[in-house]
């Protein structure tokens, strides 16, 4: 997200505010590789995954096909070169990087920026 080119956004919160709020959700060490967890950030459920190579990704936790908040409980793996999670309810596969559903291209889940600061996992919230 290029800070310099972005226009200031109108907001209800007291200003001045940065473009992205970073929320600490846990320590990296608390995450088992390929075993998702859910974080609750400002009332929104976010599924957070640490991959085998220690990259961390975050997507919306709600499975759009069923409406249940379960994506963090899906199996993490790969399809071709894409890192994926499979919905535990009806097995649709989502790309962890883009949030797109690989089985139904018209469907996707929100994706969130993630960064590691001093061993802590932070999720960026627009």
């Amino acid at each position: 997200m290029g800070l310099a080119t972005d226009q200031p956004q109108p907001t209800m919160e007291p200003s001045p505010l940065p473009q992205t709020y970073w929320h600490v959700v846990c320590e990296l060490a608390e995450l088992t590789p390929e075993h998702g967890v859910t974080a609750l950030v400002r009332g929104i459920q976010i599924a957070v995954f640490r991959l085998y190579d220690d990259r961390v990704f975050a997507v919306g936790n709600i499975d759009p096909f069923s409406g249940a908040a379960v994506l963090s409980r899906g199996i993490v793996g790969t399809r071709g070169s894409a890192a994926t999670v499979t919905s535990p309810l009806h097995k649709q596969v989502f790309d962890l990087v883009t949030g797109h559903c690989l089985d139904h291209p018209q469907v996707s889940v929100p994706r969130y920026d993630v960064r590691l600061v001093n061993g802590k996992v932070e999720i960026g919230f627009p």
């Binding site: 759009p64 409406g67 309810l89």
Partner: peptide, 29 residues
């Protein structure tokens, strides 16, 4: 997101509501 209503003296899930309206995706589910 988990909530219940009563039916015959016990709980029963309310929802959840799928977010997608795509007929294909919805029906495969």
């Amino acid at each position: 997101t988990i909530s219940f209503r009563a039916e015959r003296g016990q709980i029963r899930p309310v929802g959840p509501v799928p977010l997608t309206v795509s007929s294909k995706a919805g029906s495969s589910q």
